[in-house]
Amino acid sequence: MEKNKIRSDHPLDAMLRTDRIPHIWCPGCGIGTAFSACMVAMQASGINLDKTVMVSGIGCSGRGAGYTRLDSYHTTHGRAIPFASGMKLANPELNVVVFSGDGDLFAIGGNHFIHAARRNMDITVICVNNLIYGMTGGQAAATTPCLAKTTTTPLGNPDPPFSLPLLAFASGATYVARWTILHTRDLTKSIEEALNRRGFSFIEVLAPCPTGYGRKNKERSLDTLKIYQERTVIKNGAHPMDAVMDFGNSITLGKFVDHDRPTFSDNYDRTCRPHFA
């Protein structure tokens, strides 16, 4: 009852399902900031919001679709990109944005990601990378740094993580960027740019997970943000191969790739139905 009385005039309220706010994300979680940057970018980009769809998978970041007032889809685990691809092909007028986490997009949904990038589907993928499976209890993910402690790797993670920008670039994405939630302005600008271009755009957003990752590794969310402040180096145009992510030393941020090539629909129309094109 008390909840319904909350009134505010926050500038983003028009974009949010305010009856669901406050959201479920923990205090200090970075997903809220990444989500708010996404909402600001959508508002600022001038795209038709009635023709914009947000698709999320499963996980903490997957809750994003439930908090936006746009048309949004909360899909099955790892399948956000196939749903988004289908939607884009059925109705090419739509702007399709995938907002999901690293576990959903790169572990269970890894194959969908590389093939959508290979085909250059015309969608925007925003991946909140919190280095862990947050919602299921802090297990080691495909992006957990080497030697990091998680509930499934109490002695430290023996495996090296994926480099997401390099993976996206190698698979064929035409726009690749990496930012942190501290770099909100660059992040917002980058999302805006990605929304207004054709082709497969991928933006990785580093975000702290104080509950799943921080507690095990003795890192409060403010400490994580201090690391982002002190150790990140912005190198726009750097080769994704040089985009290092070493939390003890240096983290490379920036827009790494931005080039054009024919999208899936272009190639399909040209090859399979030349009389339609």
Binding site: S8, H10, P11, L12, D13, L16, I21, P22, H23, W25, G28, C29, G30, I31, G32, T33, F35, S36, A37, V40, I181, L182, T184, R185, T188
Partner: peptide, 13 residues
């Protein structure tokens, strides 16, 4: 507006 953009909870502007 930096507080507004970094707040994860839409609680400040």
């Amino acid at each position: 507006h930096y507080c507004e953009t970094i707040c994860p909870d839409f609680a400040i502007y």
